[in-house]
Write a protein that binds this DNA or RNA. Sequence first.
DNA 1: TATTGTTATACTCTATAACTATA
DNA 2: TATAGTTATAGAGTATAACAATA
Lengths: 165, 165
Amino acid sequence: MPRGPQSSSERASSDLGDVAPRLRLAVSRIARRMRIEAGDGLGPTPSQMSALATLDKFGPLRIGELAVREQVTAPTMTRIVNVLQAGELVVRSVDSGDRRSWVVTLTPAGHTLVRKIRRDRTAFLVTMLAALPPEQLERLAGALPVLETLAGSDSPGSGGDTQVG
Amino acid sequence: MPRGPQSSSERASSDLGDVAPRLRLAVSRIARRMRIEAGDGLGPTPSQMSALATLDKFGPLRIGELAVREQVTAPTMTRIVNVLQAGELVVRSVDSGDRRSWVVTLTPAGHTLVRKIRRDRTAFLVTMLAALPPEQLERLAGALPVLETLAGSDSPGSGGDTQVG
DNA sequence: TATTGTTATACTCTATAACTATA
DNA sequence: TATAGTTATAGAGTATAACAATA
């Protein structure tokens, strides 16, 4: 097994050619672990949670606006909002100025829930990171801006993501 | 905006406290982009793809074994295998020694498809990585072992993952 | 009897098409 | 007419329960 001259880290800068497959696998698995270890099956479904996160980020929105941001059809968003409303996580109010529309607003309980789940999802990583030697944590922190570049930004209209956590 | 003394990188080793939330968000988004930009809606559904990947990794398996590895019930796996069989991606053969069981095997076409999708998923990252300045690629490569630690390994029985890509 | 897999049935999430109310 | 949202209906994917064939 050929090794480069550098000595400190397992496999670092040598053979950059296999960075892509390794990064793909690592990212997929970390994402999956975060989902699962945060108790994915409990509480709101992914689509409900995503709608809550969008409301948390952008503030009150109309059904149609929510549907566009969530990349979901209007009937689907109607149902999602109905469920959230039944759970008292959002309220609907008539749009002053256009009585065909509803404005959907997060309730305090909705806010609290979004923050709780966000915390839960981060908690898994916090635990993992705490177990890392400082040198590895440094390296991870150093690569964070690069990862954020790869992640891109969620441009509101263009299928923006608004991840829960 | 307070900045640490180090000069070369945007935000690196200072305030490690927010590594977890940033990493969480970055990982979620990269995973999502990989899924979407690889043409997620096309070809086999996620559950079908996952079953194919498991067969690719572990070789021929019985329906029940597949169901356990995929964390799905037996009736569900029956249906998944039926669809894959109709698409000529797998074949069923009787288990010599227990005629209640079927052994499911990937066809050459199934193999080819798994590899194609794996390539497609990596392709997005290859493009993104090619656009990075060498210094950033270095930093990413340096953090890869750490990310792989966080990713963990998929222990076969314990709901192992067997990511497609 | 116990086990492997299938069939029957139901539930959730999503979509498209048709509809109602307002602009 | 055109638009915002809802209702009606259908399809994919999953589960539990009941069943068939074999061990």
